[in-house]
Amino acid sequence: MGFKLLSKLLVYLTASIMAIASPLAFSVDSSGEYPTVSEIPVGEVRLYQIADGVWSHIATQSFDGAVYPSNGLIVRDGDELLLIDTAWGAKNTAALLAEIEKQIGLPVTRAVSTHFHDDRVGGVDVLRAAGVATYASPSTRRLAEVEGNEIPTHSLEGLSSSGDAVRFGPVELFYPGAAHSTDNLIVYVPSASVLYGGCAIYELSRTSAGNVADADLAEWPTSIERIQQHYPEAQFVIPGHGLPGGLDLLKHTTNVVKAHTNRSVVE
């Protein structure tokens, strides 16, 4: 069995187990497998329904001669939608809004960016022009300005110390501490036991640490421990890039980060 097929099978099995364990909360999309990078042309966006009122959005972007996937989250909030992270750029984010209108038909009224990198804030200006209120932590807003990236308009308070959590509509926002970046936030959907790890969490097929220019490698494993301790009931975990899975993604990420750190020390 090929690795790609095995990865998709694991996603399907995880979703099936969740649907059985929580039949009222989960209505997993039966329309197909989780979209992969090879299936999404740059400039297009796919939506994948995880649970009743919960979707991931998947886009792709060219970077350094390669094409990478990027995940975000959409959560229903009454007759409105909360968006977590842009679709990595203005063109993708405009396509995301169009796809949401086509498939869901509810307005996106608020959006949260989970850290300051372009795959999370690139497209904020498109959201703002569409009347979406954009939010991020003060740290993310400051770092985005320093980096020359787009800056969300509103500040999220109460997320300055490791372990801080605040309720934001249908989700809980959690600051686990520094990891992929010093400002990275985690998003949890309690009604569906869905954990969105953003770039602080890796997919299972990833074996290298990737972009760690703004990471705190020493603190990252401790931050992941905080996530595990705060959300032990999480059933569906979405990484910032690639295929979702279960809580095993947290341990896998820790292993990859520690291996990278150990290699760096040896070198």
Rank of each mutant, 00 (worst) to 15 (best):
M18E: 05
P69I: 11
R76Q: 07
T14F: 10
T86M: 02
A133N: 05
T86A: 14
L173S: 00
A133G: 08
P138D: 13
G122R: 12
G163N: 07
S139T: 14
S22R: 07
P170K: 07
V54P: 02
E33F: 15
G177Y: 00
L81Q: 00
N92P: 06
A215D: 05
S30V: 11
T207Y: 10
G72W: 01
A51E: 12
A213P: 10
V237N: 02
I104S: 00
E157M: 15
G89H: 02
L82K: 00
I100W: 02
T253K: 00
A213T: 09
V265A: 11
T93R: 00
R110K: 07
A234C: 05
G53E: 14
G72P: 02
H252P: 01
L73F: 03
D118K: 07
L204G: 09
L10V: 08
A165G: 09
T36M: 07
G105I: 07
S181T: 09
D64A: 08
L249I: 05
R263G: 09
P152W: 02
D64L: 11
S137V: 13
I20K: 07
L96S: 02
V75E: 02
V194N: 00
D85S: 00
Q235R: 06
V124T: 06
T86V: 06
A178P: 13
R128Y: 06
I100V: 12
L24I: 12
E219I: 10
F236R: 09
R142I: 14
Y68L: 13
T222R: 10
E233C: 06
L97N: 00
L204V: 12
S208Q: 10
R142W: 12
G131R: 08
R263A: 11
I17A: 06
L143F: 12
I186R: 01
H117G: 00
Y135P: 01
H260K: 13
S139R: 08
N71E: 01
L173A: 04
E80M: 05
E145G: 11
M18D: 09
D77A: 12
S56Q: 05
T114H: 00
H230Q: 13
Y175W: 13
L73R: 02
A178K: 11
Y175N: 06
R141L: 13
Q49C: 13
A213L: 13
R141M: 09
S56N: 14
C199H: 00
E172K: 04
I100Q: 02
A19V: 11
T93H: 03
Q61I: 14
T153A: 12
Y196P: 01
L185A: 02
I40W: 12
T114N: 00
R226P: 04
D52M: 09
G169T: 03
S161R: 14
V108Y: 01
K4V: 10
S137K: 14
S223N: 04
A87P: 11
E39L: 08
A51S: 13
P239D: 00
H230V: 10
A19W: 14
I50F: 08
V28H: 04
G131Y: 06
A218T: 12
G105P: 10
A15K: 11
L47Y: 00
V28F: 13
G32I: 14
D125R: 09
V187R: 01
T60F: 06
E99T: 06
I58K: 07
A213I: 09
A200W: 02
T14P: 12
V257Q: 03
A259P: 07
P232Q: 07
N262R: 09
I74F: 03
S31H: 09
H180Y: 04
A179Q: 00
P69N: 11
L24H: 12
A192S: 06
D214P: 05
G210H: 04
G197A: 09
L96Y: 00
A200H: 04
S223E: 02
A209Q: 10
L204S: 11
E203L: 02
E267P: 14
T253F: 00
E157W: 14
D248H: 09
I186N: 03
D214V: 10
I186W: 01
V171L: 09
V75F: 02
V212T: 11
P239L: 02
T140M: 02
P244R: 04
L47Q: 03
R226W: 05
S161Q: 14
D118P: 09
T182A: 08
D119C: 01
G43H: 12
